[in-house]
């Protein structure tokens, strides 16, 4: 017996060693990024990472000398609206495909599925022209309107809606609810986990979108954070590493805190969406 215990202890030590090693590998970019954000650029450039000149100067610079807060605000507005729009439109179309019967349903569903195969990156030229014709360039709506709905979201929610128990719907029928009521009072509450997953997915998607906003934003009034960070680097002059690291930290720290707090919730939500 003692032999087996010993082996277990050794195995656990090995496991911890591996766990710690991998954690270090994954976290190194963060440590370096966040640590250097407290150092003066001159020290960073010399490779003097162990400098003791720690200060918040870079953060103050980032907040006062760059429109980073405006970028953050813009991004939050665009991502939030996109998220709610996805929740609304995707759940509605998913409802239609699950609970309604209509002509060419298969055909329309196939259309949705085909959309998932068409990369939005391939549509940038005509979409730019459409948005321009609608007069939306350089406004939030240029980023929101083309992505008000999502075929993937519809597909995901359809898979989830299909597993709504029969009894619920029967009860609703007995109560004489119409489709709007069933949608709002039965289907949506029952599938809230999937909705939250889609919401998180859509929010992150909008938060991370990079190519389209470059094309349709022309000023700091509408520029989003992903593109904004690029502005801090400049064309013919060189830049201030300390401040750039600080602005990256400003963006990443809140998101990571939110993730830490909601981690467990996210995990089950994500997995739900993944396999259903």
């Amino acid at each position: 017996m003692a032999n087996i215990d010993e082996r277990n202890v050794l195995k656990n030590i090995f496991s911890y060693f591996l766990l710690i090693l991998l954690a270090v590998v994954i976290l190194v970019p963060f440590f370096i990024g966040i640590w250097t954000s407290f150092l003066p650029t001159a020290d960073i450039l010399k490779g003097n990472y162990f400098s003791t000149n720690i200060s918040l100067t870079n953060y103050i610079d980032a907040f006062t000398n760059t429109p980073i807060l405006r970028y953050l605000g813009n991004t939050i507005v665009v991502a939030t609206i996109t998220m709610f729009a996805h929740l609304l439109f995707c759940s509605m179309s998913a409802y239609a495909f699950v609970f309604l019967d209509f002509k060419y349903k298969k055909f329309f569903f196939a259309l949705f599925m085909i959309t998932m195969m068409l990369p939005s990156e391939a549509a940038i030229i005509p979409n730019f022209q459409t948005v321009k014709a609608l007069g939306l360039l350089d406004h939030y709506s240029a980023m929101i309107v083309p992505s008000l709905t999502s075929a993937f979201g519809t597909f995901m929610l359809r898979q989830s809606f299909m597993q709504t128990p029969k009894e619920l719907k029967e009860a609703a029928d007995i109560e004489g609810l119409n489709h709007f009521q069933i949608f709002w009072k039965v289907v949506l509450p029952y599938n809230r986990i999937s909705l939250i997953t889609l919401g998180a997915y859509s929010f992150l998607g909008a938060w991370n979108s990079y190519l389209w906003p470059i094309l349709v934003t022309f000023s700091n009034n509408s520029r989003v954070i992903q593109n904004g960070l690029k502005q801090l680097q400049s064309e013919e002059t060189f830049n201030n590493w300390g401040m750039i690291q600080a602005s990256a930290a400003i963006i990443v720290i809140p998101t990571i805190l939110v993730l830490f707090i909601g981690q467990h919730y996210f995990k089950s939500g994500l997995n739900e969406g993944a396999v259903k």
Binding site: V77, L134, D138, H139, S141, V145
Partner: peptide, 10 residues
């Protein structure tokens, strides 16, 4: 949504 986005950003 379109108009809202527009006015908000201007």
């Amino acid at each position: 949504v379109a108009v809202f986005g527009k006015t908000l950003s201007t």
